[in-house]
Design a protein around this nucleic acid. Structure first.
Length: 371
RNA sequence: GGAGGGGUUCCCGAGUGGCCAAAGGGAACAGACUGUAAAUCUGUCGUCGUACGACUUCGGAGGUUCAAAUCCUCCCCCCUCCA
């Protein structure tokens, strides 16, 4: 069986590669738009194709609750149900352990959630989250983990990370190898020795790729960066590396510099819906008065439909008027920007000039770049 | 002509003696958002001042009172009903 991942170029720690899935081969580094409920909010699959998204995310927790993973399975899986021909990665619900912390209880067996939709109780285990993700037919599945909250003390983090490791073994055991890819997740909070131990224990298992979890949970840029730089080199070279939930363009550029291959984040789509847009000139808030009569394109360097067609003044008007097209046009642009960012990074790595490229991105986000 | 109701800070609107620079909503102006409980949330929103504070404001003019958006008098304007 051919390996799922092939590294193609390197430039110091940064690398490019090809990730083979049942729904296409993905050039890395890659940014994966988030489509929690089986839809990248405000964006249809044909738009995703046009902007060159090879893979998107779904979420096991949300899709299990509604409409139900078995209902989706009866329709041929999430690709068929959502008419998405590209690759799919699903999160196990581990992030919801963190984000819905008021609605769940963690035990050795798994996590009991009270549904945020109707309050009903549901048990998520390493085994059934794999089963749910297989019902969805995700090309890449994630093991159930606990995303440790920022500020957790050493003792809590050590116990949580050990539990995530035991869960990872159970998930691997519950999932036949050779089908859908399964990724393990390294935790350890903000303690380097726990990150090292987690990496050792997770990477000793036969996963198809390895993720770094528990970053971008409220810590400073400096803390995140130092934890990333500690952890990324501990992951196997020959497997894909995925930095979960990250991040800003700057975070992504730094992640690539640290040897990460895959990223996902709600930022481009959520911020698009909240009026913050990423451009080749930096971040702008389209709501601002200064754009009221600005007839220039949103981003003169971008060739997305939004930038080719509309002025900043019009986009501001759409946003302020609560026109639904604002969500689509803004999301289309932001996703284009994030996807282009990783494509540009691929090119820079191939041409051995990634350091300069990263420096360029740093210069666009000066207020974030201090370390 | 008669009877009644009403004019509040950009808009709507609460407030009927002091706790009122005046609820609440909207608009406006900023900011946040990182494996999505998010078309969400936060701040500012009379003037000056970093702030304590000072000053001006509740249709207009006068008055009562230690104190008035609130009570009294007159005036201006708006709405409803009856003739």
């Amino acid at each position: 069986m051919t390996a799922a991942f092939t590294m193609t170029h390197t430039d110091n720690a940064a690398r490019t590669g090809l990730l083979r899935t049942a729904h296409g081969t993905i050039p890395t580094p890659v940014f994966m738009p988030v489509g929690t409920a089986g839809s990248v909010k405000a964006i249809a699959p044909d738009d995703l194709l046009k902007i060159g998204a090879p893979i998107i995310l779904g979420n096991a927790y949300h899709l299990y609750l509604r409409p139900g993973d078995e209902l989706i399975a009866r329709r041929g899986g999430l690709h068929a149900f959502a008419s998405w021909g590209g690759a799919l990665l699903t999160d196990s619900g581990g992030y919801q352990v963190f984000s819905l912390s008021g609605l769940r209880k963690i035990t050795e067996e798994g996590v009991v959630f009270r549904s945020h939709l109707d309050g009903s109780c549901h048990l998520f285990t390493p085994e059934n989250t794999v089963a749910i993700q297989r019902n969805l037919n995700a090309d890449i599945m994630m093991v159930l983990d606990e995303c440790v909250p920022y500020g957790a003390d050493y003792d809590y983090t050590e116990r949580s990370t050990a539990l995530t490791t035991r869960w990872a073994r159970r998930a691997r055991a519950a999932c036949p190898a050779g089908g859908n890819l399964l990724f393990g997740i390294v935790h350890g909070g903000f303690f380097t020795d726990l990150r090292s131990r987690s990496a050792e224990e997770i990477c000793a298992q036969d996963f198809d790729g390895f993720a770094i979890g528990g970053l971008s949970v409220g810590e400073s840029k400096a803390e995140m960066h130092s934890m990333l730089c500690h952890t990324a080199p501990l992951l196997p070279q020959e497997k894909p590396r995925y930095l979960m939930g990250v991040g800003t363009p700057l975070d992504i550029a730094r992640g690539i510099g640290a040897g990460i291959d895959m990223f996902d984040c709600v930022l481009p789509t959520r911020n698009a819906r909240n009026g913050t847009l990423y451009t080749s000139l930096g971040k702008i808030n389209i709501k601002r008065k200064e754009f009221a009569e600005d007839d220039s394109p949103l981003d003169p360097a971008c060739d997305c439909y939004t930038c080719r067609t509309f002025s900043r003044a019009y986009l501001r008007h759409l946003y302020r008027s609560r026109e639904l097209s604002a969500f689509r046009l803004n999301s289309l642009h932001n996703l284009t920007y994030f996807l282009q960012l990783t494509r540009d990074a691929q090119k820079a790595i191939q041409e051995k000039r990634f350091a300069a490229y990263q420096a360029h991105i740093e210069s666009l986000y000066p207020e974030e770049s201090a370390l």
